[in-house]
Nucleic acid binder design. Structure first.
Lengths: 150, 150
DNA sequence: CGTATTTATCATATTCGCATGAGAAAATCC
DNA sequence: GGATTTTCTCATGCGAATATGATAAATACG
């Protein structure tokens, strides 16, 4: 579903989010902890830095940091620089020209599916994943701060 | 979403379903009509034939035919020989070991999405696509033979 | 200023999906 | 049996995603 590159990006950002507030974290540390090729990851993080999701600093004490709160960071923003989501890639049967007005045989049914997937990436934030490892969403709502803090 | 190979397979099977009942159709015809590389398609159809979705016959008058009714042929069966669906590839974060009992940070939320996609491929049949080009499912039911033929 | 640390960048290798081309094997037709 | 049609199979090519290695540029520390 995701390219290897986008998957690395997502895992690294999750890692950074878990360490947010600490000092910048060097690529070496991330690469080692997550078993991602070092230089390859470096390039990926650089790309995210250009998009201002991360800040990078060189020299001793340098590394990468999230520039935004995890709660304000949708997965889509992390993944989009690497994998195309909205746009061309919509047609199941690979038609270059396939739209609502000129649909291929699978258009309507498939569009509905893809919309769900895109919505997932747009509405799920990095924070959602790090506070709530793994659960399906039901338990998540029960453990929601608004409920829990009362 | 689908590999090029799986997409070719699906388009070719749709084509064969539309011509079901006629004589076997040679690869050349399909390849030309659908603009798919001839030898590449040949290999794909051979794979489907090994799975008994198609029958192949050589020599004059030969070609490929569906062996099952389109209504009994889920998209999953067509696509599965080429793209992995169920099984490994489930984890958003690419964990090789990621299950309900040992979930990664995205497991629950993502599993729900992927289940929907898999269900789509398992429950949508080839017939669904050829009788009902493009519509979203609502208009489809209105145009259903059972209703229309009365 | 010199050294260590760390990102940025470039050149190159590896792997894999996709595609092409040339024939071999089987079936049909005369 | 020979010619034609068609699938089957193998060898090879190509390009993009993935990965590696080496080096340059920036920053910090003494």
């Amino acid at each position: 579903m995701l390219s290897q590159t986008a998957e690395y990006a997502l895992r690294a950002v999750l890692y950074l989010a878990e360490h947010q507030g600490e000092n910048p974290i060097p690529v070496d540390a991330i690469a080692e902890d997550l078993s991602i090729p070092r230089n390859y990851l470096s390039k990926i993080l650089h790309t995210l830095a250009k998009r201002d999701l991360l800040s990078s600093s060189r020299g001793r004490g340098g590394g990468f940091e999230l520039t935004v709160r995890a709660s304000g960071l949708p997965l889509l923003a992390v993944v989009e620089p690497f994998d195309e989501f909205e746009g061309d890639q919509q047609c199941l049967l690979g038609r270059t020209r396939c739209s609502d007005t000129s649909p291929c045989a699978a258009h309507g049914r498939w569009k509905e599916m893809m919309d769900r997937v895109t919505t997932f990436f747009r509405e799920t934030t990095v924070e959602d994943l790090i506070q709530d490892p793994g659960s399906g969403g039901l338990a998540a709502r029960r453990a929601d701060p608004a409920t829990t803090s009362s």
